[in-house]
Amino acid sequence: MDPGAHRMSVLVEGVQWLFDSGNWWGNRGIVARVVEHLEYSGAALGVAFVIAFPIGLIIGHTGKGRFVASSTANVLRAVPTYGVVSLLFIWRPLTLWPLLLALAILALPPIMLNTAAGIANVDPQTRDAAEGVGLTGFQVLTKVEAPCALPLILAGMRSAANQVIATATVLGVKGQGGLGVFIFSGYGTQRYYIVYGASIAIIAIVLLVEAAFAVLQRRLVSPGLRVARIGKQLRSRKSITLVGNSAR
């Protein structure tokens, strides 16, 4: 068979598999796996947010602990999720929830660093004025710094969501759950069309979530900051912020 035709046919089969309603239902069907995938990703993001966001706020507001934070973030980024999942599987094969920890690790650095950088990047003049007119430390944080840092905070969450959803694939390594189950089993049985079908589903979810964040950005971020950004690009930025990504 012509290899080109083979490539196409595997892809087409993947799409067909994805859209075949016969594969949708049941507790091992695509829908159930999508729900699982979202549940685990959402839970991991939630856990990471609860930990990373306050830490980011404190670091950004006080300007202390930035070095420790970025070093810690680097170590966290270096941790191979697949390895951690495998380890956890060996140690506690009975339940999936510890595996959330492995995913949450991924989401910590972008949320923490972007929050800290967003707060730290607030124009010192703005902060000075806020203090000078009599806002308390807490009011400065909640009424001025956090709203000004919102674009970066959301970018960090978006990046975290992107990585967590893509990486949640590894939860399928021993058939535990999520769309990764199809990918691992597709590989194992050399039914690559299943791998493609499940991959397309994951990519679609990531893009939908990205779109949701774009909408959120539009809704939540003050238009004043959007106008300000145009002017800001002409000036140099003080600290370079990465909308960081890492392992999946």
Partner: peptide
């Protein structure tokens, strides 16, 4: 203050 220090989001 110099450059006003206005709150950019308001």
């Amino acid at each position: 203050i110099q450059q006003a220090g206005l709150f950019p989001h308001r």
